[in-house]
């Protein structure tokens, strides 16, 4: 049975990392995760197999062949940083967190080093993608290494097309909802 991920497109912090992780899993093996979207300010940012807790970690754990973790502890540390420090809108605090990430990337291509991105990169990239404060900071190369690292993933459709797929699905949801309403009006 395949897993199900529900992404809330109206959440204050959109769960891009979860969405990208699901896209990566589906790229490795089609239909691994069924991705659905909701448009509801009150709902949790994301729900994986019915649970809204630690969804990103749960997706990563569900696909150990895809997210090969050589260092579970370090991965968990960066997922925590992503969830707690990279989504904040306080400019001063965010600057400090980005500086920390920048230092880590001084001599590393990916957050945990190595030859391929890991869940740590997905978590941090997704967090930054959801943060409206980040766009201009990346563009202005305030943290040069972060900018170089972030830009690399923009070359990967699994990452950069996540936003597009979300917007498209939300538009379809809206369309479906309004066409439903029209029907009711017609009935009345």
């Amino acid at each position: 049975m395949s897993a199900t991920l529900v992404i809330n497109g109206k959440a204050p912090v959109v769960a891009y990392a979860d969405l990208i992780a699901a896209r990566i899993a589906n790229n490795a093996k089609p239909e691994s995760v069924k991705v659905e979207f909701v448009d509801d300010k009150k709902a949790a940012p994301s729900t994986f197999n019915g649970s809204t807790e630690n969804t990103f970690q749960a997706i990563v754990d569900a696909f150990p062949q895809v997210f090969i973790d050589s260092n579970k502890e370090e991965t968990a540390k960066w997922i925590k940083i992503a969830n707690e420090e990279l989504v904040i809108k306080n400019f001063q605090k965010l600057s400090q967190s980005l500086e920390h990430l920048d230092t880590q990337l001084n001599l590393r291509t990916f957050i945990l080093g190595g030859l391929h991105y890991t869940a740590a990169d997905v978590a941090c990239w997704g967090a930054l993608r959801s943060n409206g404060m980040v766009g201009s900071i990346i563009k202005n190369k305030v943290d040069v290494n972060v900018s170089r690292w972030y830009t690399l993933f923009e070359l990967d459709p699994l990452f950069h097309e996540a936003h597009e797929s979300l917007t498209k699905s939300l538009q379809e949801l809206k369309k479906a909802a309004t066409s439903g309403k029209k029907k009711e009006v017609h009935k009345a």
């Binding site: 291509t109 190369k141 040069v144 900018s147 170089r148 690292w149 830009t151 690399l152 070359l155 990967d156």
Partner: peptide
């Protein structure tokens, strides 16, 4: 160049 690009031809 490698400050702004991960690889020399700016590829993935």
């Amino acid at each position: 160049f490698l400050r702004d690009n991960t690889f020399l031809v700016s590829t993935l």
